[in-house]
């Protein structure tokens, strides 16, 4: 029992301290659907320096919490563009965009 409590404490402590020196930004994307959400979050959440990435499908806004010492905002936007979506001023990479399934393209039909 003591073990669990200490493990859980450690764990939450980690999450709390993990927030030190991180920044949260919102990026407007051209994501259309839940499949886009999986694509973007799946890529970003496994990228070094990013604490979490969450896409809100209705507003197309991607919230990213990251540590600027490890990854720059520009690099994050380029990552998103590399998957095939616009990220604010950074336009989607043509090749990646063309490879997206129909539903994920702009207009989405």
């Amino acid at each position: 029992m003591k073990v669990i409590i200490s493990v859980m404490f450690l764990f939450f402590a980690m999450t709390v301290f993990g927030q030190k020196g991180t920044e949260e930004i919102k990026i407007k994307t051209t994501a259309e659907c839940n499949s886009c959400k999986e694509r973007i979050e799946g890529k970003l959440n496994y990228t070094k320096g990013i604490r979490f990435a969450e896409l809100d499908v209705p507003t197309k806004v991607l919230t990213v919490s990251y540590s600027p010492s490890k990854i720059s905002l520009k690099e994050i936007k380029e990552l998103v563009a590399g998957i095939g979506y616009d990220a604010d001023e950074v336009k989607a990479e043509k090749k990646a965009y063309n490879a997206l399934p129909e539903c994920c393209k702009v207009g989405g039909m």
């Binding site: 859980m8 764990f11 999450t15 979050e41 959440n45 496994y46 990013i50 604490r51 979490f52 990435a53 969450e54 919490s65």
Partner: peptide, 9 residues
Amino acid sequence: KSRNKRWMV
């Protein structure tokens, strides 16, 4: 489940 979905307790 952490916000980046990588930790689950």
